[in-house]
Structures are given as structure tokens and as C-alpha cells.
Design a protein around this nucleic acid. Structure first.
Lengths: 209, 209
DNA sequence: TAGATTGTTAATCGATTAACAATC
DNA sequence: TAGATTGTTAATCGATTAACAATC
């Protein structure tokens, strides 16, 4: 099946990333072959779901045998485009931004923080890990060099929309947004939101009174 | 409609938290009344969806008029149980844990970090913001005093399951898990996962080649 | 009253899962 | 061959949305 003709459901994409993490772990442990039933045990994703998800992208296994762990990992990496270096720009050099820049799993999947921005004069020019914190107003010119298409927004809610606008103007087409606001972006730009408070609120709902 | 007889869809709960954030913002701006159509403009959630979501919990508006912003905010807070102080324990005093402890929005919604744990001897005893980092092995006894039912896991994937087990043993019934693993927990314990790399991978998929 | 907007039903849409022929 | 497991179809399940009577 063809990725350009058939729209892949977003939940499928999320699970593809989950499968990949699982396969990389198995590969590191030297496991060579795995069945959909075993994937279900490890990820708690239904085996039929797993096979259906893969079917959006092609055929990956051998009936009666299962899937080659390293091959499947390689092919999913390619599908998700995490098999190549991907420059990312980050706006917001606060605690969260700092944690993200230092987050080792991001670089492990070839996401490379290429520039860090803030609008706070007392932060601009200082260092965050091995990055200089740059003036937000230089974002367009910096990204002309860097060429990132992925952006991370780690600023307060009140500033998020204007940062998004700036990013989109500078050629960013995919945004990970940590601010609790619904961003307005043009067609063709993808946004995913991460909202800790929302997550905690959903958990809170489930507490016994 | 009754929350104990009818299971509320998880997407509805997530949106309820979104509505609440939006209403609090409106309330702060002094807006007194709002219609579902205006909520759609602000949150990009379909107006019928909004009304349907609320219908799981009762009646909140007045036909022809709309919804009282402060009243609806108060009632959603109560439904999500974010109207009261909620103690939370956090394990993992790394960069991410540190960012979470310092995250102001959590306390704004009455989530109070009550204790921070780590297993690293060089961290134990040190301070993180205004918390002493405690030995993970003391978690059960500390939580006997603290009485938290919410826990946050901000440790590497390899340690996450054992931390989860420890939390569950200490009375935690809801876990926010930042480690990229599928936790096994007993019936009655709720887990929500936040996985930055997964989010980035989904965005990466959408990039043009 | 006329106009606006709710709460809810019914229709639509899409995602999950069971079942099984194909195949190693 | 017999047993295992895939890829895919069809059935099920659940979530979203349009439509509208009820009501302010």
C-alpha cells in the first residue's frame, strides 16, 4: 500500500514510533526475529493492530516465521524519517527548554538541536549546554543557514502564537508545542501539543473521591 | 447523565482539560458568557463536540444564551478534581524532573509536588528548588505521610517499571510516565505516557522528503 | 414574539479487532 | 507435510458531527 495515496491514521503513526523503540531495544539485546504476538506482549498493542498498522506501509514479515528485528527497525526508521539527521530549532530557554536540549533520547533518534532562541535579554548570549542562546528576532536569518523544518515551542502560552508565526515564516513545517494553547497555523504545517497539566488533569479525574 | 454509570471517553476528558484552560483565560479577561461556537473558534474543537462532551456530565448552559464562563470553569474544575490541592510525588531528579518541579502551571492547577526521589547517591540529600531529594528506597514510608495518589516517573526507561511497582505498592493509583516504555500496572491504576521522541517522530513523518 | 443557542438523537465516519486464506 | 504466522477482509466498536426540537 502507498503512503501518498492512502492517509495513514495518526494513532498508527504514534504506534509506529512505539514499535520502533521496542524493536531498537530488542535489537540491542540481540533478538533477531519477533512475531506480532510477542510485540503485543511487549507493547500491549493488539497483534492484529500491529499487523494492520504495518500494512499501511507495505509487507514486512514472513508468514510462519515473523519479522526480522533489525530489518523492521531499519524500515520503520526510514518511514518515520528518523534514519537521518534532522535539525530542530527550539524557542524558550527556560527550565523545560533546557531539559529538552539536554534530553539524550532526542539526539539518539537523530534530532539535532541546531539553535536555541529566547526573547529575554538577560538570557541572550548566555550558553545552554553547548548552545548559545540567540535573540528570537534573529530566528529567520539563523534558520536560513540552519534549514530546520522542525521547531519546538517551550515558551509561556501568551507568547506561543507569535513564536509559531515566526517559525512558519522561517520555513518550519512541523511544530512540537508545549504551551497550553491551540496554535493557528497555515495548511501544510503540522502541530503536536504536549500539555503536562492536561495530562495530570486526566489522571486527576480518575482518582477516587 | 451519570459519570459512574456511563464511561466517559478519554478524548472527552482531554478536551475537558482544554476547555478549562480556555475558560480560565476568558475568566481572567473578564468574559462572562460564551457560546459553543465561540469555544470552537478558540479551541478548534467542533461546537457540537463541545456540547456532546459536556453532556456526559450534566447540563451547563442556557439555550439561546450560552454558558456562564466562571460557573462552567468551576464545574469543570470540580469534575476533573483540580479544584482541590492534590499531592504528587515525583521520581527522577534529572533535568526533566527539575523542569517539572519548577513548572508553575502545575501548582496553578493545585498539583503540589509533595516529595522528590532519586536513586543516585550523589543527588540524594541535595535540594531541587525547595525540595530535598530523597532516597528512592524511602518512598513507601514517605508516602505514608504524604498520602499522594498521583505519581510522576521521570527516570530512564530501564528503571521505569521498578519505579512504577514501588509507587503502586505505596498507594499511587495514577501515573504520568515520561519513560518510553509500556508500564505494567494492576487493574485500577491509570497510566498516561508522555514521550517526546514519539511526538517528534510523528512530526518527522510529516516532513516532505 | 423572533432570534439564538442549547442538549440530544441519529447518521456518519473512522479505528480496532477477529477471522481466515495464503504462505513460509 | 503439519504448524506457525502473516497480510487483509469483514465485522465490530466507538467517536465525531449534523440536525433539530426544546427553551431561553
Amino acid at each position: 500500500m502507498n503512503q501518498s495515496t492512502n492517509r495513514v491514521p495518526v494513532p498508527t503513526l504514534e504506534r509506529m514510533a512505539t514499535y520502533l523503540a521496542c524493536l531498537q531495544e530488542l535489537d540491542a539485546r540481540g533478538v533477531e526475529t519477533i512475531s506480532s504476538a510477542e510485540i503485543e506482549k511487549l507493547t500491549h498493542v493488539n497483534a492484529a493492530q500491529f499487523r494492520k498498522d504495518l500494512s499501511y506501509f507495505g509487507e514486512f514479515g514472513r508468514p510462519g516465521i515473523g519479522y526480522s528485528v533489525p530489518e523492521l527497525a531499519r524500515r520503520i526508521s526510514k518511514i518515520l524519517k528518523v534514519d537521518r539527521e534532522q535539525p530542530v530549532i527550539l524557542v524558550g530557554a527556560g527550565n523545560l527548554g533546557s531539559a529538552l536540549v539536554g534530553y539524550p533520547s532526542l539526539s539518539r533518534e537523530h534530532f539535532r538541536i541546531a539553535a536555541v532562541f529566547d526573547n529575554n535579554p538577560s538570557k541572550i548570549g548566555r550558553r545552554l549546554w553547548d548552545h548559545e542562546i540567540r535573540d528570537i528576532s534573529t530566528l529567520p536569518e539563523v534558520n536560513r543557514e540552519v534549514g530546520a523544518r522542525l521547531g519546538i515551542i517551550a515558551v509561556p502560552a501568551s507568547a506561543a502564537q507569535s513564536v509559531a508565526d515566526l517559525m512558519v515564516g522561517a520555513g518550519i513545517t512541523a511544530i512540537l508545542n508545549f504551551a497550553p494553547v491551540s496554535l493557528k497555523v497555515p495548511q501544510g504545517v503540522v502541530v503536536r501539543n504536549v500539555d503536562f497539566v492536561q495530562e495530570m488533569a486526566v489522571l486527576s479525574y480518575h482518582l477516587a473521591v
